[in-house]
């Protein structure tokens, strides 16, 4: 019984984090993006510097009519947002934020594989939305999503494999345990490849060709309104949380830091995740969107060779130090 309570409590906490962190990142994005463009961003909702803007947005989304186009494949259309969102919730369960059993939702033996596998499923939601909307822009968005996923899944996996090789385990807490500071220069290429490929999988700018609003409206999400649309947006921001958390755990040493790895380890994890999330926003503000062919070229001619080189380097160093 105690076990069940424990599990329920952990899941509840993870669910809370899942609901709160994406909103925090969304609000940060509002503000950071605004200031990077010389604006102020939301200032009214909630009184103090518009802190409740996203809550207000949520209320607005909830009030909107939930429209399903007449020609759409109804059930798949309605199911798609859930398919897009749930995997990130599942992934969040497996990301450790501190040392020990207490700081992870659920220890998964093959955590790395679990995380990457489930993240890949999330894209199915976009594909379902793109196809079921009965809209040419949605279909184009879906196609681009699929092409992008196929291109960037490979370098992401290779980069993750490199760090798994270095640590000698595929368990996420195990990888952090094995982390040493000199892994940072050793795995830096892998980290960059992983982060870039992750950005592309999330369809974040500058890799947002599948939802390029100026040419295909909003890609696969064109026909969505109200709560279902909000769920897709939430999935994007939950994806940022997951990507930044994963990069922290895999490449930045998670809870390991100069001071107090024991008690305040989770602060380090959150801090690193927050910095990475800031970088995600920063990249969005700074760079123009990559064209479709540039996207594919970047993945196949730059990221894949870099990831392979990283694996080779990891292997050589690993053998050398043993």
């Amino acid at each position: 019984m105690n076990d069940a309570l424990d599990v329920a409590l952990r899941l509840l906490v993870v669910f809370g984090v899942f609901l709160v962190l994406p909103l925090v990142i969304g609000q940060t994005e509002h503000k950071v993006m605004a200031h990077m463009q010389g604006r102020l961003g939301p200032m009214y909702a909630g009184g103090f510097h518009g802190w409740a803007q996203l809550v207000a947005d949520g209320v607005k989304f909830a009030q909107k009519e939930d429209v399903v186009p007449a020609g759409a494949d109804r059930r798949i259309f309605q199911l798609a947002p859930a398919v897009a969102l749930l995997p990130y919730l599942l992934v969040l369960v497996a990301i450790p934020i501190g040392p020990g059993e207490g700081a992870v939702g659920e220890v998964v033996d093959a955590g790395l594989f679990f995380v990457l596998a489930v993240m890949g499923v999330g894209v199915l939601g976009s594909l379902m939305a793109g196809w079921a909307s009965a809209n040419k822009f949605s279909l184009l968005g879906g196609l681009r999503t699929a092409a992008q996923l196929l291109a960037y899944e490979l370098p992401m996996l290779l980069a993750a494999a490199s760090v798994a090789m270095a640590a000698g385990t595929v368990s996420l807490p195990g990888i952090v345990e094995a982390f040493e500071w000199w892994w940072l220069p050793w795995q830096i290429v892998g980290a960059l490849v992983f982060f870039t490929a992750g950005l592309a999988e999330l369809q974040r700018p500058p890799f947002d060709m599948p939802v390029a609003d100026s040419e295909i409206i909003f890609g696969a999400y064109t026909e969505y309104t109200g709560l279902r649309f909000a769920l897709f947006l939430l999935a994007e921001y939950a994806g940022i949380v997951v990507l930044c958390g994963l990069t922290t755990v895999l490449f930045l040493g998670g809870w390991q830091g100069p001071w107090g790895a024991d008690g305040l380890g989770w602060v380090w994890t959150l801090l690193k995740t927050a910095v990475l999330a800031f970088v995600v926003i920063w990249l969005r503000v700074s760079y123009p969107r990559l064209r479709e062919d540039q996207l594919q070229k970047l993945a196949w001619t730059t990221l894949v060779p870099l990831a392979l080189a990283q694996i080779a380097l990891t292997g050589i160093v690993k053998v050398a130090i043993q």
Partner: peptide, 9 residues
């Protein structure tokens, strides 16, 4: 994650 995505594509 991959084969079905390819199929759908």
């Amino acid at each position: 994650g991959s084969v079905v995505v390819l199929l759908l594509f």
